[in-house]
C-alpha cells in the first residue's frame, strides 16, 4: 500500500513536471509546477522527512509559486505563441540528450548502489534536524542568513527606479 502511494505520487510528480514542458499558458505551467512540488512534498513525507515536507509546501508551493504568479500577472503574459517543443524542428537533439542522461543515471544507480540493509522507513524527527542545524552546521546557517540578506539587498537595489 505504502509503495503504491509512493509510486503513484512519483508518477504524478513526473507527469506534472513533464506537462510544464508542453503547455502554452504560463498560468497552467505554474499550476503544473505547484502540483509537482506538492507531490514532491508528499514524497518527502513518505521517505520519512516530515519537516522537509512541511517546508516544501510552505516555501515552494506557498512562497515561490506566489512570486511566479505575481510576475506572470504583472507582466500580463499571454499564452505563449512559441512553437511547442514537439512540433518544432529542434526537439529531437535535446530529447535525445536527455534520454541518454537519464539512462546514464539509471545505470549509475543500479550499478553502484548496494542493496538497502534496512527495509523499514526510519523517520528522522525535526528535532534531530534542528539539533544538526544548530549544532555542527551553525556556521552554515549564519552564512545562509547572510546570503538571504544579500539577496534581499540585491533585489531591493535592482528594483529601485534610480540606481546609482
Amino acid at each position: 500500500m505504502y509503495e503504491i502511494i509512493f509510486y503513484l505520487t512519483a508518477a504524478v510528480t513526473v507527469l506534472a513536471a513533464g506537462s510544464i514542458l508542453i503547455v502554452r499558458n504560463p498560468i497552467h505551467a505554474a499550476l503544473y509546477l505547484v502540483i509537482a512540488l506538492l507531490a514532491l512534498a508528499l514524497l518527502f513525507f513518505l521517505l520519512g522527512a516530515p519537516l522537509l515536507a512541511a517546508l516544501q509546501v510552505m516555501i515552494y508551493a506557498g512562497a515561490i509559486m506566489v512570486l511566479f504568479l505575481f510576475l506572470i500577472m504583472v507582466m500580463n503574459l499571454r499564452p505563449t505563441q512559441e512553437q511547442l517543443p514537439f512540433l518544432s524542428a529542434g526537439w529531437k537533439v535535446p530529447a535525445f540528450l536527455a534520454l541518454i542522461l537519464w539512462l546514464e543515471l539509471l545505470v549509475l544507480f543500479f550499478g553502484l548502489l548496494p542493496e538497502p540493509a534496512d527495509e523499514t522507513i526510519t523517520v528522522i524527527e525535526p528535532k534531530v534536524v534542528g539539533e544538526s542545524l544548530f549544532g555542527p552546521y551553525l556556521l552554515v546557517v549564519e552564512a545562509a542568513a547572510i546570503l538571504l540578506l544579500a539577496a534581499l539587498i540585491a533585489v531591493l537595489y535592482l528594483s529601485r527606479k534610480k540606481r546609482l
Partner: peptide
C-alpha cells in the same frame, strides 16, 4: 544550456 548538457553527458560518459 544544450552545451552544458552535452558537457555533462560527456563527463558522465567518461567516468562511466
Amino acid at each position: 544550456a544544450l552545451m552544458i548538457c552535452a558537457g555533462a553527458v560527456f563527463l558522465l560518459g567518461y567516468w562511466l
